[in-house]
Design a binder for these strands. Sequence first.
DNA 1: CGCACCTTTGAAAGCTTTCAATACGGGTGG
DNA 2: CCACCCGTATTGAAAGCTTTCAAAGGTGCG
Lengths: 254, 254
Amino acid sequence: MNRVATSVIMSPLATRLGRLYKVDQDELLELERLTHSHRLYERDSIIVERNQRQTQFILMIEGWAARCRYSPDGSRQIIHFLLPGDLATPDVFVIRYSDHDIVALSDVTVRLIDPEALTALIAGSNSLAPGLWWAAELEDAILREHIVRLGRRSARARIAHLLLELHRRLLNVDQATEEVFVMPLSQTIIADTLGLTNVYVSRSLSQLVKDGMIDVKGRIISIIDRARLAEECDFDIAHFHENSSFKESYMGNN
Amino acid sequence: MNRVATSVIMSPLATRLGRLYKVDQDELLELERLTHSHRLYERDSIIVERNQRQTQFILMIEGWAARCRYSPDGSRQIIHFLLPGDLATPDVFVIRYSDHDIVALSDVTVRLIDPEALTALIAGSNSLAPGLWWAAELEDAILREHIVRLGRRSARARIAHLLLELHRRLLNVDQATEEVFVMPLSQTIIADTLGLTNVYVSRSLSQLVKDGMIDVKGRIISIIDRARLAEECDFDIAHFHENSSFKESYMGNN
DNA sequence: CGCACCTTTGAAAGCTTTCAATACGGGTGG
DNA sequence: CCACCCGTATTGAAAGCTTTCAAAGGTGCG
């Protein structure tokens, strides 16, 4: 835990960009070698604060974080989970003040990159810009999916859908096997994500277990019957845009 | 209705970018003069279809449209409203196939711009790229706000919040007065947006009217008591990022 | 005038929350 | 090694918000 990855080992972001969006390996290495510093955050600490001036391009290396908003009554809505390889502040180039908090849900390691250094690197590359842009668009797609989940699905289906989504995202950064993954979230955090209460998350989750679709052992989730799970919540991986490539984009060499 | 704006009159997008993000007027004129074609869509027609290959940068000129997703049971979730001046396909540069539908909610006029022509224009400009990027980030902020709305607010508050948000967005493109705006949406469409039923939208909306917060006459909405409305739903315009400027961004000349 | 679409209203049912109490699990100290 | 503790998870019963089903009332337009 909290060990800082060395530069020779590909970061989770590079893994995703290379594997899923066919970004050139050598340009990914440039990204890895870019001057930067790592920073650790303990669980429950604030990585970015709402209304705070943003100055760094922040990249998730290890651990889980979340974008969230707090309401006056103290309730919290988790907007998006940030996993290893995700861009925490893709908007640092054009937005000065963050409109939400980013909090660490586990101990977290991030990389801080100077926006101007990144701009310079991108200028000398032809696959990095579309690659990073693709990663940012991927988050948008997940946000849209989250809206559908909140607006049109039952508690059971919301939970099933979230599990499948997180599993897929972890698979894409080599942090899950085909059937098992670690989800460091309390049921209260899941509730804050899905617009439910922790009590009802407990009830619904144990129903999924009883129905033989998943298995839960502490923070370890096993997908037992993916087909039934996916059918129940209308899960579709199309929105992960995994069959794209920068070479086929309008920013590629086509 | 459906009259095509001439190139000399600033499009709603240019209005927003100039006024809210301080993009240079002359560069905005370049954008207006860019080769392009207009296209009309009737109400209920499909502007972009899910899984369809995207090829054009589409700009909303007139009318309302929505990003939406249909579930197997036939229910629909509206993800985001597209108003005049909005970017319908900001992701055309890096995403090949759309993950959702864009449908016309009223008769709609759009501008179709060739992505490569836009790329060329942006390359010769220094405020257009951050401007368009800012507009895209603004949509992200609205999506995040929508998630909070769906996850953590009552039906009443969801409706109040949506009304205030749409009012603000229309104000920013000169399509509303301080108190009144036209919302060409049936209550069923509002329900599809807010994760409710049309019946309950009707009940909640008439409560807001009875409580003297708003007035509804057909499609014309009047904000009567903005303060109370905003307080009830915790509305905050910070996420519109209206006090930013490209000159203060990492892509500006700072 | 009549049809199509939209809104309103009532009553019953349903999903989820609330409140409150009990159980579990992992780490610490005796 | 066991007792204790704290955060987390589970369970029950009652209440509440929203949906469903159904029917009636409006509104605009050909």
